[in-house]
């Protein structure tokens, strides 16, 4: 409901606009953007891809994490124009064929790796970045390397369980209270 890409009225900011080519979730885009548009605002406002969240707009929370050429970055501090030619993957591009949940998405649901869900797209993109990097094996390592994603609801132990499942290619029972 009410999810329209935000367009700028004719004439506003057109003099400043710069042509940028980006692939977003596999779709090639030609955009004319003023240089001050962050990747995050481009996604959320102009493309109506609101899955990527804004929790601080200053690199301090990780909610805006997306993958650029397979690497996780904070989209709030990245000017979109500087990514010309890049491939961007957001949470909307994670699911598989026919909307089947990505293994991380499925694991987050099974392990209740969220509460309000606002940090979740960032956590999942970040976790995918972590898997791509290949530097984390142990739970302690995942913890450290997921510390750039704040979860104010405090779902951290469950987030770890979810990522560990995917890292180890298994489906474990969610932890239960005793």
């Amino acid at each position: 409901m009410f999810r329209h890409p935000q367009t700028t009225p004719k004439g506003v900011e057109t003099d400043d606009a710069i042509r940028v080519q980006l692939s977003v979730n596999g779709e090639p885009l030609d955009l004319d953007l003023p240089p001050w548009t962050s990747l995050l605002d481009l996604l959320r406002h102009r493309l109506a891809l609101t899955g990527t969240k804004k929790g601080c707009d200053h690199g301090q929370c990780g909610a805006c994490t997306v993958l650029v050429d397979g690497r996780r970055i904070n989209s709030c501090l990245k000017l979109a124009v500087s990514l010309d030619g890049a491939e961007v993957t957001t949470i909307e591009g994670m699911a598989g064929e026919g909307g089947a949940l990505h293994p991380l998405q499925d694991a987050f649901v099974r392990h209740d790796g969220f509460q309000c869900g606002y940090c979740t797209p960032g956590q999942i993109c970040s976790a995918q970045g972590l898997l791509n990097e290949g530097h984390a094996q142990s739970r302690e390592e995942i913890k450290e390397l997921m510390s750039g994603n704040i979860c104010r609801c405090g779902a951290y132990p469950n987030i770890l369980d979810a990522i560990e499942d995917v890292l180890n290619d298994r489906v474990s029972e969610p932890r239960m209270p005793e």
Binding site: R71, I73, E133
Partner: peptide, 9 residues
């Protein structure tokens, strides 16, 4: 320093 995603930028 910082976080993994910041270090990637």
């Amino acid at each position: 320093g910082a976080s993994p995603q910041l270090r990637n930028s």
